[in-house]
Design a protein around this nucleic acid. Sequence first.
DNA 1: CGCATATTCAACCAAATGGTTGACGATACC
DNA 2: GGTATCGTCAACCATTTGGTTGAATATGCG
Lengths: 111, 111
Amino acid sequence: MSDDLDIIFAALADPTRRAILAMLLEDDMAVTDVADPFEMSLAAISKHLTILTRAGLISQEKRGRVKWCKLEPDAMRAASVWMQGFGQFDPVNLDAFERFLEAELPKGDGA
Amino acid sequence: MSDDLDIIFAALADPTRRAILAMLLEDDMAVTDVADPFEMSLAAISKHLTILTRAGLISQEKRGRVKWCKLEPDAMRAASVWMQGFGQFDPVNLDAFERFLEAELPKGDGA
DNA sequence: CGCATATTCAACCAAATGGTTGACGATACC
DNA sequence: GGTATCGTCAACCATTTGGTTGAATATGCG
């Protein structure tokens, strides 16, 4: 569906959201912890997480009063498949990917 | 660079623009011809093409009074590489891709 | 119970987005 | 030169987006 791709690509078009996805690549996280490295309100991060969830890029599960965020890599497949058609890419270029990851990590976070 | 991905993903987040890319996959086209199947003004399509150009997804070359639009698949590589890191996708699923292409073609275009 | 923590909701705001129309510049054609 | 075609520009408009703050809800803790 065209609409799915709309929402997925739109979700990926924001650097904060991509940084969140990169963080979740390492481990599941609570909303508060996701928000921690960013210089913006918790409410703003909460909105970003909603957008990522509606795009299917993450899922959120509430355990107790903590809502855990989990990467859902499947949702990216539709977008990935769509893109693959536009060129003969290196199937996976992990090296370049890692450089992107670094660039994506929230600034000012020393670790 | 984070900024590049911003612009690329934002460009891909619009169904009209994805449809344009799909059209250009078949052949280079003049702006007027790109606009033809869409039910929106030429100016609107011109704006979309500018956005695609600034994202590096297409290039435009003026020959005479006709401006030719050409797909530039390389620009998608950065985005593709970024995405590949988020799962072990089928490297290329051409079958699913073709179904997407059909879904992406402008509606109401009988031909 | 009473307080702290985790998260969202609601109202608001500035800026960006996607569209329109009409005028305009540049090129081609006769 | 005059006219038609190709494409963009400028001004405008409605909607969406990404952020804020303050109040509200829900859970856990002593």
